[in-house]
């Protein structure tokens, strides 16, 4: 074997090793993505949950959907919340084909509070307890049949829920 061919073979080996290494890295990466604890098909959205303004949060959560106010949504919240750390919220609707319900507290540092994903077997009725830093509008958006509907109500907060 001449020095030149040895060099060539060596290079080829390196190339194959390089290729195999990259291939295994790629596979490991895919496996890592697949095994990362993701429970839902829709991804938890950093852009929507991190948005600091209501409009931005809504636009990130529901891009391309326009909002329509609706009387068909029942939003049950206290008119006055003595303790902003625990504000009970219930959203209910008889609308058909509800795929998601999201709650926003307009004046919280990040308004998007929670998004619920419903299934065809779901009854559109969800409850949760939220923190409210100060008196604010609580906005409930219901996604049904490819449209977005809104109900909102002001909650007066006596003691804010975001302090120490």
């Amino acid at each position: 074997m001449t020095a030149a061919t040895a060099k060539l073979v060596g290079k080829r080996v390196v190339n194959r090793r390089y290729f195999l290494t990259k291939l295994s890295q790629g596979a490991a990466c895919l496996a890592a993505v697949a095994s990362f604890p993701h429970l839902v098909f829709a991804q938890w959205s950093e852009a929507a949950f991190g948005a600091k303004e209501l409009e931005k949060a809504i636009a990130e959560r529901y891009p391309e959907l326009t909002i329509e106010d609706s009387d068909a949504i029942t939003l049950k919240v206290p008119a006055i919340a003595e303790n902003g750390a625990v504000v009970p919220v219930t959203v209910k609707t008889d609308m058909a084909d509800v795929s998601s319900i999201s709650l926003f507290v307009e004046k919280n540092p990040t308004p998007l509070s929670a998004s619920f994903y419903l299934t065809p077997g779901s009854v559109a009725e969800v409850s949760v307890r939220l923190r409210m830093g100060e008196t604010s509008n609580l906005v409930a958006l219901v996604e049904a049949g490819g449209k977005l509907y809104r109900a909102q109500q002001e909650v007066k907060v006596t003691i804010g829920g975001c302090g120490g």
Binding site: F49, S113, Y117, R131
Partner: peptide
């Protein structure tokens, strides 16, 4: 299923 943010109270309560 639900996605939650930091505005959900300590010791979360959820119902569906």
């Amino acid at each position: 299923s639900a996605h939650l943010g930091t505005a959900v109270s300590k010791d979360p309560y959820l119902s569906f």
